[in-house]
Amino acid sequence: MRRTLTLGARLCLAVRLRLAARLSQVACLCVAACLCLAACGPQSTTHHRPGTAHDVVTGPATPAPGQAHAEITITRGRVSPPPGWLEVAEGSPVTITVTSDTPDELHVHGYDIKAGLPAGKPVTVRFTAGLTGVFAVETHRAKLVLTQVAVR
């Protein structure tokens, strides 16, 4: 009695295993088909980034006292003051003023803020630090890290 039961159970297991193998093969094919479809379909052009409202002003900034602010100049590939950290409390405003001696593009990572930097003219970006983490502020052409905004 016991032996037949075990045999039955074994048979059952074998059938189930074969079924599982078949099912997983079908699943694999389905995923492959989906991937192909996705590849052929239109590529997403509306690529959202978690950017918050910000504004870009040409000219120096007049930040309120006590507000997170960095003033950075780039001369012949040198960043002054040397790249450090700009500590910001979550939800508070940040102002960064950059003056570059060559035309370049400024990029605040994570907040996805981009601003053109005309040669020799100060450009100010203002935004609210809504995301926590450490975000690099870089120039795209010269590939310089200007500072890192640490939001906590």
Partner: peptide
Amino acid sequence: MTGVLAHGVGERSDLPI
């Protein structure tokens, strides 16, 4: 797109613990 810092890609890095 170009992540100069760490990890090849990525927009943010972790805060110090």
